[in-house]
Design a protein around this nucleic acid. Structure first.
Length: 200
DNA sequence: GCACAACCCTATCCTGAAGG
DNA sequence: CCTTCAGGATAGGGTTGTGC
């Protein structure tokens, strides 16, 4: 049921028409996609007053902060990932291990691959902490439970899927997913807290 | 393949009361 | 005053069922 009268709807349509460009902005679109925001917007167009203006401004501030916060966290994790990958590659390039050499001239198989194959995916190898040089991130990962560290290592060092990790740890996929998510959230909050402290 | 909701169990920590 | 114990809060981790 529509609680707005036809005159109001006309006003809204008119506003939309004369502010096409503004309303096509993805941020504004996303903001108005929320039912509560759209109702406020309609109210502001139909019966403009300071109080409504104030409310919609507050809502937009909240919305904008949330968007920026999510974007910041995502990019922090993304760049941590990129930097980690760069460091690993640089390290591997600079210090090629004997184990990374092919076992003979005819074969591309390395000694490392051979050992890994024989050990049949030992859980203990490939600790995620071995790849961390950032002290804050290192400390953050250290603060996780052993189970969470194991899952992160298997997921991001060995590149295993949740189902594969679940099979290795004798748990369900959902339990692995939940623990991994929980671990990432813990890391996020620790990194954010650390950044905030730096800014002060 | 993954995430989420709902619910449950267990371990740990904190707090306040009771007893020696 | 110290120790012990019970009860509540919290966090980690488990499951099934379900949706994207």
């Amino acid at each position: 049921m529509d609680k707005w009268d036809p005159e109001c709807r006309d006003k809204v349509e008119q506003f939309k028409h004369s502010n096409k460009d503004f309303l096509s902005n993805p941020l504004i679109k996303e903001f108005l996609a929320d039912e509560e925001h759209y109702e406020l917007f309609t109210e502001a167009v139909c019966s403009p007053c300071d109080e409504v203006q104030e409310r919609i401004n507050e809502k937009f501030k909240e919305f904008y902060f949330r968007i920026r916060f999510i974007s910041y966290v995502s990019s922090t994790l993304y760049f941590h990932g990129i930097n980690l990958d760069k460091k690993i590659r640089k390290h591997d390039q600079r210090f090629p291990l004997q184990l990374d050499q092919p076992i003979n001239n005819e074969s591309e198989t390395t000694l490392k691959e051979l050992i890994e194959y024989k050990e049949n995916d030992s859980i203990d190898s490939g600790d995620v902490l071995d790849f961390i040089s950032d002290p804050v991130l290192y400390k953050a990962i250290k603060s996780l439970t052993n189970n969470q560290q194991d899952i992160l290592s298997l997921a991001y060092v060995k590149g295993l899927k949740d189902v594969e990790i679940a099979a290795l740890l004798k748990k369900t996929q959902q339990a692995v997913s939940k623990s991994r998510k929980k671990a990432l959230n813990t890391l996020k909050s620790i990194l954010l807290k650390s950044d905030e402290e730096k800014e002060l």
